[in-house]
Each structure stands twice: as structure tokens, then as C-alpha cells.
């Protein structure tokens, strides 16, 4: 008997605490009983679509009238302007002419030639590769391709026809060139 130690009995308070802790654990189990349902996600990736833009600017909104003043029959004068497509899509460039009313007789004896050139310095009379037409009826595509964000230098040459009658002496004609960029 002397050699055996009898463990002291747990105190009532300790037993009560242990029972309380067990009760808490038991109470938690049903809450943890919801299960994770399967789930799978795929992405659809068409990305972003961007619409293009188109805008046209002209370097010289007003050409110098004096550059082609005092023309004689058969004589011509040329000056250049540049047209820029500031948009993001390619265009073609067309030009049409409107002669201010009332159109003087001289207008029907003039010829306009619009020619795309590499630089303004290349602009001069009698260029080839452009579109030549009577001033009063000028309406034509002058540059088939005006890529996005590009500039074209256009040489405008005005010619008084060789057979212009003497009645057109001293006359002047005011005209405007309308440039139109059309989406290709």
C-alpha cells in the first residue's frame, strides 16, 4: 500500500470546465457540415474592339491668289498644299471645285490639274500622274490611297486655255476646292 500513489480526484470545477469545453466542440460540428460544391469557370476572350476614326486637315486653307494672277492664254501657275489624314483608317482622297457665282466667262476657259507630289518643291507646271479637268467641272479622286496618319502633298496647277477668247481679258474667277476623304 505504501508504494502506490492514489491520484487525487479531479476537482469538481475542472470536471465542469471540461464538460463545458466538450459541449462547445460538439455544438460546432453541425455548422461545419455544409460541403463545398464543385465549381468551374471558363473565360470567353474576344478582347476589345476599337472603332476607327477619320479626320482630314489641310495645311493651307487659303491658297495664294496672286500666285496665279495675270495668266496669259497657254500659261499656267502652280502651288502646293498638303492634306493629312489624322484618323486611324485609310481613305481615298477626292477633290471637287466650286466656282463662286456668278461664274465669269474666264472660268470656263481654265483647266485645273491636281497632282500628288513627293514634296512641295516638286510642284510645278505640266506634271504627269495627276488629274486634269476643266475648272468648272472638276470632280475626281486625286489620290487613291491616303493611309491612316499620313500626309499627301498636292500640287494645284491652274492653266488658262490656249484658245481662251479675248473676252476673258481682265477677268478673275474665285473658286474653292473641296477635298473629301472617303473610307476605303
Amino acid at each position: 500500500m505504501r508504494g502506490i500513489r492514489v491520484p487525487s480526484r479531479p476537482k469538481t470545477r475542472t470536471l465542469l470546465l471540461a464538460a463545458a469545453a466538450t459541449a462547445v466542440v460538439v455544438a460546432l460540428i453541425p455548422v461545419g457540415g455544409t460541403y463545398a460544391l464543385w465549381n468551374d469557370v471558363e473565360t470567353v476572350s474576344p478582347g476589345t474592339i476599337t472603332s476607327g476614326s477619320m479626320a482630314l486637315t489641310v495645311s493651307t486653307p487659303t491658297l495664294t491668289a496672286s500666285a496665279w494672277s495675270n495668266l496669259l492664254p497657254g500659261q499656267s501657275a502652280a502651288q502646293s498644299f498638303s492634306v493629312t489624314n489624322t484618323g486611324t483608317v485609310a481613305a481615298s482622297l477626292a477633290a471637287s471645285v466650286a466656282v463662286s457665282a456668278p461664274a465669269p466667262l474666264i472660268a470656263s476657259h481654265m483647266t485645273l490639274r491636281l497632282t500628288p507630289v513627293a514634296t512641295a518643291a516638286a510642284c510645278g507646271p505640266s506634271l504627269t500622274g495627276g488629274v486634269t479637268a476643266p475648272l468648272t467641272t472638276y470632280s475626281s479622286v486625286i489620290a487613291a490611297a491616303l493611309p491612316a496618319n499620313s500626309t499627301k502633298v498636292i500640287c494645284a496647277e491652274v492653266l488658262l486655255n490656249t484658245n481662251a477668247p479675248i473676252a476673258v481679258q481682265g477677268q478673275s474667277a474665285a473658286f474653292g476646292i473641296t477635298l473629301t476623304a472617303t473610307q476605303k
Binding site: 460544391l37 465549381n39 469557370v41 476572350s45 474576344p46 478582347g47 476589345t48 474592339i49 472603332s51
Partner: peptide, 20 residues
Amino acid sequence: GDQDQSIDLSTISIELSQTA
């Protein structure tokens, strides 16, 4: 108004979920 516009379709997804 239709120039230089973006149509953002980059956040489309399909979700498959098990139902209880």
C-alpha cells in the same frame, strides 16, 4: 460619335456550379 470608340468584351466568362 462612333469614331475612336472601344467595345470592351474582355470580361466575359462562363461559370458552371454544382447545385445542392
